[in-house]
Amino acid sequence: MKDQQGMSIIVKTVTRVSVWLILLYGWYIILHGHLTPGGGFAGGVIIALAFLNVMLAYGKDFTVKWLNIQFLKDMEAASITLFLVMGLLGISFGGAFLANFLGKGKLFHLFSAGTIPLFNVIIGIKVAMSLFLVVWVLADIDSTKGGEL
């Protein structure tokens, strides 16, 4: 037991497998947001919960090394810019801000509904990154201390 942070080896081994399944499920929910219940908001929370699972099982230091927090911060700030860029593309190609300028495709197919799946992906990334960052910052605070500032 070199690594004292985190939980026991059983939890770590299970987490090593389950986190990928949870991430896969999250992406499934995001990509099928225009066909089934779900979408960017629900899938984003599932992805954030997968990262949280890793953080609970392995401890904070490992997670910071594994995930590259600065990259997550950049993604969070970039996703809202991407949303705006998609809106501007709607002006140039569709004639209105946030217009649905791509082809509609066939109903009930995965690649259909124009820009709606793209917006779902952007919102999913945004929600996942921002919620995980909140938990990451909250993990740092010492909840027993008080009255020192």
Binding site: F41, V127, S130, V134, I141, K145, G146, G147
Partner: peptide, 28 residues
């Protein structure tokens, strides 16, 4: 309501952060 639920969680996170900050300052 779908957007409202998401905003609610953001507001809760902000309020929690402010409460923690106040606890660090006043210990109550």
């Amino acid at each position: 309501v779908l957007t409202s639920i998401v905003i609610e969680l953001g507001i809760t996170a902000l309020l929690v952060a402010l409460a923690i900050r106040l606890y660090q300052k006043y210990a109550t």
